[in-house]
Nucleic acid binder design. Structure first.
Lengths: 104, 104
DNA sequence: TTTATATTTCGCAAAATAACGAAATGATAT
DNA sequence: ATATCATTTCGTTATTTTGCGAAATATAAA
């Protein structure tokens, strides 16, 4: 093969998810939501994570944009939970990545 | 908890791996090495991936730094393979991430 | 209506990343 | 000694990311 093809959409999409997870603060949030199978509030997180409120908000926004979490308005709070559907998709992608098979 | 602790080393380390995988070119390389259970040369990759030689080299360096691949000098080539040990570690980390359990 | 509370957006600065081509490296072949 | 080949390093530029505090938003309580 001498042709430079574009990388597949699947690869690009998966890289986007990995990138969203590739920051300690964001990974911590996802670990927490995943492991405890729970939801959380920005105000709780800001006490556990060494980062300011506005920065935390920015990270939550990115996780939301990547489709990994979703926010539910619950005045005066916003409750953040895993996006179960996309999380399951991610699980499958990762599984496939770690499953050795012969074809490309 | 009102104390802002540092994020754990485990989380920080895992984020580093995820970050290394969070770029389409790097993910493509890892997918290839993982799925085909094979090794490859920079010169082969440069024909498949829409990026220049020096840029590709940079990405390989990052994957190496993250411990995901290793290079074996085989003049005049360099043969890149998955770092099996670390790859297995990564697999376990990911598995744990996707395994719901109650404790944090 | 004013006050308080939780969170986000804005504006900015510093740092990191991505990409490129030219030049360097290291090895072999002529 | 010179030429060739695969790859990396260097120097640079453009873009993105990260982080902060101040200001804005939205909602509820006094």
């Amino acid at each position: 093969m001498k042709k430079k093809t574009e990388l597949s959409i699947e690869t690009t999409e998966m890289a986007r998810v990995l990138k969203a997870l590739g920051h300690p603060v964001r990974l911590y949030i996802i670990q927490k939501l995943s492991k405890m199978n729970a939801c959380c509030y920005s105000g709780d997180l800001v006490d556990e994570i060494p980062v300011g409120r506005s920065t935390l908000s920015q990270h939550l926004k990115e996780l939301k944009y990547a489709g990994l979490i979703q926010g539910e308005v619950e005045p005066p709070y916003i409750k953040y939970c895993l996006n179960k559907g996309n999380w399951e998709k991610a699980r499958k992608m990762f599984n496939e990545l770690f499953t050795e098979n012969e074809q490309l």
